[in-house]
Design a binder for these strands. Structure first.
Lengths: 213, 213
DNA sequence: ATTATCTATAGATCTATAGATAATGC
DNA sequence: ATTATCTATAGATCTATAGATAATGC
C-alpha cells in the first residue's frame, strides 16, 4: 500500500496519541506490515506481536494507535479499497463517448485487479472478521467503486453509444464488471494456463459489452 | 448437509475407529455441526469443543475421527462441493439441443447457488485455511463442477445450437457461469433490492448466452 | 510536564492427548 | 479383549494492558 489517501469518513478508530501526523504515519506503517502478513498467513494466524514487529515498534506501541486487532484489519481493508479506487479514478478519461470510456475503464480496472489480486482476495476472505459497523463501511466502499461503472454505463446510455438500459440492468452490469475483474484474481490458477491478462481483458470486454450495443 | 455422498477420493483422513460405517455416520455428524458453526462464527473462531458438543459427543471422541481441526474443515468443504455437484447433476437433462440444456443447467445451478449461498461463501473464505494438499483437492472439485458447463458448451457447439467456440473460450464462459452464480451468493446484499432470483437468472442467462448464438 | 514508547505479564483461551471408563461380543 | 467414548489437563499461545522508561519542549 504506497500512499494511503485520507480515509474519507467511516468509523473513527481511537488513539492515545495526540500528534495526528504521527498517528497517520504510524498507521501507515501498521497497514503496510499487516497487509503482507494477512495475505500470507491470514488474519487469525497473524499475531499482534508480529504486526508490531514488522511495523518496527513494540506491541505496546501498536495498542496506542488501535484498540484491537480488528481495528488493524479495518485499516487494512480501507487502505486496499482506497488504493483501488484511486488507481482506477486516476486513469479514467472523459472522451467523446461513454461506450469507449467504459471499455477503457474496464481495461484499467482489470489491470488494477491483476496487480492487487492478493489484496482483493484478502477482502473476500476477511471482511467477515470485521465488527458489524466497520464491515458495513467496507461494503459501502465496494459499492462506491461499483458506482464508477454505473456512472459510465449511464453516460453511455445518455449519449446513445450504448443501447437503452433500465437502472436495474445498469446495476447488474456494473456488478458483473466488478466480479469478472475479481475473478481474474481469485481464479487465476484456473485461467492463467489459457489466457494472458491482455487476452482476458479483450475477451471479457467483448462478452460484457457485446450485449450493450 | 443432508446426505454426504462418498467423497470420491482425495486425501484420506486417519481415524482410530475400525467400524467404517460408524466413521461415516460420525463424520456426517461432525460435518453437519461444523458447517453451521463455521458459517456463523467462521472457522478460526469456532472451537473444537463447540464442534464436538454440537455433534453430540465429547472432544476426545471428535479426535478419534479426525486428526486436526483442519481435517474438519476439509470434510466440510468436501461435503459442500459434493452436495452442489449432486444437486446440479441430478437435475441436468439431455434434451434435443445443447443450447437449451445449457440454459436449463444455468437455471438449476443458480437456484442451487441461491440455496447454498452461505456454504459457497464459506468456501471462498476458508479454503485458504486448508493444508496445501487438501486445498488442492477442494480446488479440483471446483473444476469438476466447472467441467459440467464446459461439457454442455462443447455439446452446444457440436450440435450447432451455439456458435463455434475455441477451447479457451469454452473455459472462460464456463468459469463466468460459475462465478456469476456465486455472485448471487456473495453480493446478494447489493443485488436483492433490484432483483428476485428469477429475474436474476433470466437477465444473467441473457447476458451469458446472448453472445453465444 | 507531557507525550510516546517499551517491557513484562495477567488473564483467558484452545488444540490435542493420555489415561480412565463404559459398552460390546466372544 | 476389544472397541468406542469420556474426563481431565499439559502445553502452548495470544490479546490487551499496567506501569516503567525515555525523549521532547517549556
Amino acid at each position: 500500500m504506497g500512499d494511503t489517501s485520507a480515509p474519507s469518513q467511516g468509523p473513527k478508530i481511537h488513539t492515545e496519541v495526540k500528534d495526528s501526523d504521527l498517528v497517520f504515519r504510524r498507521r501507515r506503517q501498521i497497514v503496510d506490515a499487516a497487509v503482507h502478513l494477512f495475505i500470507s498467513k491470514g488474519f487469525h494466524k497473524t499475531t499482534t506481536r508480529e504486526i508490531a514487529k514488522a511495523a518496527g515498534f513494540s506491541i505496546g506501541t501498536l495498542y496506542e494507535y488501535v484498540n484491537s486487532k480488528e481495528d488493524v484489519l479495518y485499516l487494512v481493508c480501507q487502505a486496499i479499497h482506497s488504493e483501488m479506487e484511486q488507481r482506477l479514478k486516476q486513469r479514467l478519461r472523459h472522451g467523446i463517448n461513454g461506450a469507449r470510456d467504459l471499455e477503457a475503464a474496464i481495461s484499467v480496472y482489470f489491470t488494477v485487479c491483476d496487480q492487487m489480486s492478493d489484496h482483493i482476495l484478502l477482502i473476500y476472505q476477511e471482511t467477515k472478521s470485521l465488527p458489524a459497523e466497520s464491515r458495513r463501511f467496507v461494503l459501502e466502499h465496494e459499492l462506491r467503486i461499483t458506482g464508477v461503472f454505473k456512472d459510465l454505463l449511464a453516460r453511455g446510455v445518455a449519449d446513445f453509444s450504448l443501447r437503452p438500459l433500465h437502472p436495474p440492468e445498469i446495476t447488474l452490469v456494473a456488478h458483473n464488471i466488478m466480479v469478472v475483474g475479481h475473478m481474474w484474481g481469485f481464479r487465476r490458477w484456473a485461467l492463467a494456463p489459457s489466457f494472458s491478462l491482455e487476452q482476458y481483458i479483450q475477451l471479457q470486454s467483448d462478452y460484457l459489452l457485446g450485449e450493450l450495443t
